[in-house]
């Protein structure tokens, strides 16, 4: 589904100083898999997502995902248009041919039916995040990018939203790539965890999880968390 090979991405500051954010980053995503990226803060995870989304084209390398692949995104902040209602926000993301499609099932799954006519400013952060997830899935994308979609939510809300995300993803299968700081979140959602190195980002390690998400109990998740932590503790030179 996605074949990524970024040789280098260098940012140049106003004073001329250079910062290499990504170097020799390579990975592939198989169709209908859920991949999480974990790694140290500021290592270039979000930069990588921006390159995949086409928001940053100043890199050396290539990203292949098929010319007409539909891509949608859930950003760190819900990024709903404040002057449009929840439903209008979701419909706006749809191409003209799908503008009138029924959204009831999706809204039902995400608990958005009662607030579909509300403006984003009238929603809690949790509900706004659900609306952003609804917008991303409504498009039926071939690739779904999620950039820390549950950041700054309380544990209870984040936990509920993870379950909802998993249900919606299984009902509308797509290839998902999510950046997270929360290893437990990755352990609950991912088929594959890509562990990024310190900046400049490259893949330090890959953890493949065979147990299907729905069958993971607390013990399995704890085990996955331990595996990911071990994978993160490997130094760059050791992993080579």
């Amino acid at each position: 589904m996605l074949d990524l090979n970024i040789v280098s991405r260098v940012f140049t500051a106003a004073d001329g100083s250079r910062l290499e954010a990504v170097k020799n980053l390579q990975f592939q995503l198989k169709p209908h898999t859920f991949t999480c990226i974990v790694g140290p803060s500021g290592c270039g995870k979000t930069s990588t997502l921006r390159m995949i989304l086409g928001l940053d084209t100043g890199f050396e390398g290539h990203i292949n995902m098929g010319a007409e692949a539909t891509v949608s995104a859930v950003f760190q902040e819900p990024r709903l248009l404040p002057w449009r209602t929840v439903e209008q926000n979701v419909r706006l993301a749809l191409p003209k041919s799908k503008t009138n499609m029924l959204l009831d099932d999706l809204f039902e799954q995400l608990g958005l039916i009662p607030v579909r006519s509300f403006y984003p400013s009238e929603l809690s952060l949790g509900l706004a995040r659900r609306a952003a997830i609804a917008r991303a899935f409504a498009l039926a994308p071939e690739l779904l990018i999620l950039d820390e979609p549950f950041v700054s939510l309380d544990d209870y809300t984040a936990e509920r939203l993870r379950k909802i995300l998993l249900d919606v993803w299984q009902a509308h299968p797509t290839t998902a790539l999510m950046v997270t700081h929360n290893i437990r979140e990755a352990a609950e959602l991912a088929d594959t965890v890509l562990v990024f190195s310190e900046r400049p980002a490259s893949v330090l390690n890959t953890v493949t999880i065979d147990v299907p998400q729905k069958l993971r109990d607390d013990e399995t998740i704890d085990n996955i968390v331990r595996q990911v932590r071990a994978a993160m503790s490997v130094t760059r030179t050791a992993s080579v």
């Binding site: 989304l53 086409g54 928001l55 891509v71 949608s72 995104a73 950003f75 902040e77 990024r79 248009l81 706006l92 993301a93 191409p95 917008r135 498009l139």
Partner: peptide, 12 residues
């Protein structure tokens, strides 16, 4: 700029 990026990602 955040809304401009949104429009770009969703191909408005």
């Amino acid at each position: 700029l955040a809304y401009a990026e949104l429009a770009r990602v969703y191909r408005f």
